[in-house]
């Protein structure tokens, strides 16, 4: 994988269930418009994307790839409750916001872009799969620049508002974004590898056969347990671990946010991020920060 250079990055982590007025205040740091009819998911998408391109002028044909685990599920729950539990009509804008691509519509409208506009979800590997698709589009010449991000809300209405997930991580809102282009000039980092594997053995085989310089830092996705992480460390012998889930908390897009944090805070280092889904498929992402 070459030619996917990161020209700017953002990683917003918000408190779970924080008042949306606080999110609007955060958004006003980057955009002065009055955003109406927006929900938490859309606000998070706007905050991350606007922070990412803050100070950059982006081309009108810039594509938007939004990756997410749950998307606008919060509004979907509200709408279904209105229809089936309360037997009343849902609010029209709640209903509109249940459509998966609503957030990218708001992004395109606010950023003034007319390029490709996609929402991508793939259980536990949404960011990696979105990046895969983006790389294919860039290689095919379909895109010249893109904003790719991972956005998820912390917890669902009615789920009890738990502050921590069952693995002990603090639950947070997350929005991590990358402005990527094929040109190296002016970049702050690069996605060097994005590989998919059918199982752990195939992933380990590739890592052992790479024969490249040692990785500076390693990080693991939410489904990689402690014992398995130890096996990967033994194989990779990294200088350090980047435990973004312990440091910043968990949401469905924790990988995008964690990688964004790494690019922001670790200049001159490289990161190997190992992730897996519940079926045992693996994805390895290598990021170099300049």
């Amino acid at each position: 994988m070459t030619g996917l250079y990161i020209h700017s990055v953002s990683a917003f982590i918000g408190e779970a269930l924080a008042d949306t007025d606080l999110l609007k205040e955060e958004l006003h740091k980057y955009a002065q418009e009055n955003f109406r009819r927006v929900n938490r998911f859309i606000l998070l998408s706007l905050i991350g994307a606007r922070e990412c391109i803050h100070g950059h002028s982006i081309a009108a044909d810039t594509a938007v790839y939004l990756t997410t685990e749950y998307g606008n599920l919060g509004d979907t729950v509200v709408v279904l409750d209105e229809i089936y539990a309360a037997h009343s009509l849902p609010k029209p804008f709640h209903f509109i916001n249940t459509m998966s691509n609503t957030a990218t519509f708001y992004l395109a409208q606010n950023l003034g872009t007319r390029g490709r506009n996609l929402t991508i979800s793939s259980q536990y590997l949404s960011f990696e799969r979105g990046l895969d698709l983006l790389m294919t589009d860039l290689t095919a010449g379909a895109e010249q620049s893109a904003l790719i991000g991972g956005v998820d809300v912390a917890s669902l209405p009615g789920a009890g508002g738990e502050e921590r997930d069952t693995r002990g991580w603090r639950m947070v809102d997350g929005s991590g974004w990358f402005y990527v282009r094929p040109e190296h000039e002016g970049a702050c980092g690069a996605f060097r590898e994005n590989r998919s594997f059918r199982n752990e053995a195939a992933c380990l085989k590739w890592i052992r056969e790479r024969g490249e310089s040692p990785v500076d830092v390693v990080a693991f996705g939410a489904l990689i347990g402690g014992e398995e992480a130890s096996r990967w460390r033994e194989a990779l012998r990294p200088i350090a671990d980047f435990s973004y889930l312990d440091q910043y908390g968990y949401c469905g897009s924790a990988a995008a946010c964690g990688i964004g944090m790494f690019v922001k805070h670790f200049p001159g280092k490289s990161l190997l991020h190992i992730n897996r889904d519940p079926r045992g498929n693996y994805a390895v992402l290598e990021v170099e920060v300049f």
């Binding site: 009819r37 009343s88 009509l89 609010k91 029209p92 804008f93 509109i96």
Partner: peptide
């Protein structure tokens, strides 16, 4: 028009 729809449903409720 979406505001109109929003208001009309609120009025109905």
């Amino acid at each position: 028009s979406i505001d109109a729809l929003e208001i009309s449903i609120a009025v109905m409720n």
